[in-house]
Amino acid sequence: MGEYILEVRNLKKYFQTSYGTVKAVDDISFEVVKGTTMGLVGESGSGKSTTGHVVVGLFPPTAGKIIFKGKDISVPLEKRPKKIKRDIQMVFQDPASSLNPKKIIRDIVGLPLLVHRMVETREELEEKVSKLLELVELPPEDYMYRRPGDLGGGEKQAVSIARAIATNPSFVIFDEPTSALDVSIQAKIINAILDIQEKFKLSSLFITHDLSLMRNISSHVAIMYLGKIVEIAPTEVFFQKPMHPYTQMLLSSVPVLTKEEEELKPKGIESVGEIGSPIHPPKGCRFHPRCPYAIKGMCDKKEPMLKEIEPGHFVACHLYD
């Protein structure tokens, strides 16, 4: 095991709303090993995006710690040292909202460079931005002075990625960067991300709802359901033996193209019910109302803890007690 670049310890994030307290993230812990990618998988309402936003500092955690390179950074963004802000970057989900429609691409990608005083003159800025645009395969002379409105979704997301790596960070959070894109464009963007990760020895947190995509990009996977992590494992181990009933349900719901993929899907489990409310989550195991294997008097009473069932493979489920 290499050293950890990011450790999340008992992280909680609650939001006060007029309906009550939304427990978006409720006591989760995980680590990201330096130089690897952790895939954070879940459906809407699972708290996966909130986790990303809290780690990057957009919202302070309600409780728990975020440790980055051994330093506690669980403070609001304004209080984080500039060096940390330069080192952790994020690519957001919605390409349409990720780029300021009123600015030209040079100024969008160049912003982090200016903020961190990494360039002095306009020529220097343009030179650096050109290099960044080349990394994401956008010919600089065509794109530099255009506005986001003229760009397709994939091109916008490529610009977002260029902006995120402008300051040469060591950790990037990708929050569903391709969920709004067509498959052929998704393929381009994912390949660009993979290249950049390799070139810059980037560590990352890759948030997605797409298990097929996750398999192609991350070395570890954490599955979230209603604010909790239900299963963590190295990707290969995970696909050999998905253990949590929710994970199995999720996997069985993935539409696939080929026979080999069909064989990976767990048999005998079928998607039923809907995700519960994060304001009043079900008692005990949060998945028990949808779980075909729920044990009466156990799963609806006691909350299961994450336990290491086999080396590196953690599951929170009473079936494995």
Binding site: G57, L58, M90, F92, S98, L111, V115, S160, R163
Partner: peptide, 14 residues
Amino acid sequence: EEYFVYAAKVTGAS
């Protein structure tokens, strides 16, 4: 609340 404002905050813009 747009992501480009988030991105500017994350990078440390004033």
